[in-house]
Design a binder for these strands. Structure first.
Lengths: 165, 165, 165, 165
DNA sequence: GATGAATGAGCCTTCATTCAT
DNA sequence: GATGAATGAAGGCTCATTCAT
């Protein structure tokens, strides 16, 4: 976002002009990269996905997968977060990214139907499930809490307590 | 962040050069502004603060105050959020802003001692208390959930369920 | 047109950035300059203008004035001609420049009414009166014919023979 | 001139690199193209050329041929004109193009000898014979006068009146 | 204090040209 | 011959910052 095309190109060991062979302009570069990261995240979250398990277990697996992805691919996630907080994010149709998380949405809806999860909007569930992960893994916002397994489990406990009926 | 000094100066009806009489450079201007907003937020959160009330009630009051401030001063909060997600935020010592929220921190600690709140790090409590507010009020991240009183109360219920023992 | 803003700025002994204080963009710079030149030309052509003289004499005076201006201000005229042959000229409303030559147009119309000048379109009159001057003074198109007084008088003779009835 | 090599290559359905097999560089490409157009024009002007006819008739035929060519091959003529008004034209030796019009030059000289045409320089004759055609057919300089047969005949009348003795 | 004017540095982008295949 | 991929150089433009007044 704030990085210049020249810097991005340098990091990739190519000339700035080369970037414009593969992307129409800076906007295109940033958006395309963001979409790919979101896709990767969606895929990673669904690792060991087993719809037949109890909802709490499914969400727990997704939770752990998400932490895993974010820790291993911190740079990508940092980028995605910055992108979402920049004006460029207006260029992305939310549907484009939502489709990567459809299956997880379904679980939420099922949980609500079965009176396991509170009957609140998806946005709100996200605010208490997905977003705390982002915050806890964000090096700018969290400088003290170490991300060991125990912490991750504790965090899941809070998240689950928040949304469970 | 992305706004130019010229535009900022114009909005204040002064010459760009004048800005440099009051601030050392753009960085200084941005940081100072951020600190002031954080201070205002801290003050607003403490409206009707009454340490003698039950912890849940105190946090509820803080919660409502926070929503109130964010809705009424959206521009300021937008700025603060953008700032925190920009490289400029590295220039701010976290202690500088934390002092605006000391009293609230104390409540958390008291709640933990009294076994009312889960014994987790402050960062984690923040991730489930403060951050959901930010997300729900963020127009980019939340486009569907309306912020009426009922929603705010529901959200508090989730937050409280997350952190309470 | 083909000259870069940097080169233009250098010729004026200023930084390229300075240009943008006075002109909105390159387009604005080029168009504004062109309009000023056209205005100067229009004014120069009307020197010693005396509507009461015979039409041939009036046009002769205009003719000489025009040659004079073009020879003395060759650079400006070169610029104007290049401008008119560039895509930038589409940005200029023809009415904007025509008003500089209104009085001369009137003479043409009067000449036609009085059956002194052939009854043809203004465009065609221009093609035989104004344009030959441009061609003869253009260093690229005319390398052999010297522009002494005798030549100028001869050229006027041809021009007049072309348009007179 | 302002078109990029990439675009020119695309229009010819070849790779930009291929252009450099046939032409040394862009300059070479532009100049070569210009010379070919001038050659075509020269050839077209001489259609039905019959040296034994009266001079006025010969020039009339040339005149009509020229209009014909310009109208039918507007794109080529536009290109040639743009080229002649660009710095690239300095790279063309005038003799290179003049040879395409030698026979017409001869007619002029003969007309002068026979005291049918005014004894003025070839440049000046061109300024009143060839150039008005260019101006009248130029869409930027002439927006009102329609180029029907009658107009073309009228224009020839002016041109002939200009140069005839 | 305040500011109008000026600018060096940097940004996004295009383009003529090269070269390995 | 032909080309896809790559790039150095340059172009138009913006901006944080300075400084004489």
């Amino acid at each position: 976002m704030s990085s210049s095309v020249a810097k991005i190109a340098k990091e990739a060991n190519v000339s700035p002009a080369t970037v414009y062979i593969y992307y129409k302009n800076k906007e295109d570069l940033l958006v395309s990269t963001f979409l790919i990261i979101k896709q990767q995240l969606g895929k990673a979250m669904l690792k060991d996905f087993n719809e037949s398990k109890p909802i709490r277990d499914i969400l727990h697996t997704v939770w752990v997968n998400t932490f895993d992805f974010i820790v291993k691919k911190q740079e990508l996630v940092n980028y995605a977060e910055q992108f979402e907080n920049s004006p460029y994010s207006d260029l992305v149709n939310k549907n484009q990214t939502d489709k990567n998380f459809e299956q997880i949405l379904k679980i939420f809806k099922k949980g609500i139907e079965q009176k396991i999860i509170k009957d609140v909007s998806i946005d709100m569930l996200e605010a208490f499930i997905y977003n705390p992960i982002i915050v806890l893994t964000n090096q700018r916002k969290n400088r003290n809490t170490k991300l060991d397994n125990k912490t991750i489990e504790t965090a899941f406990q809070l998240a689950w307590d928040a949304i469970k009926l």
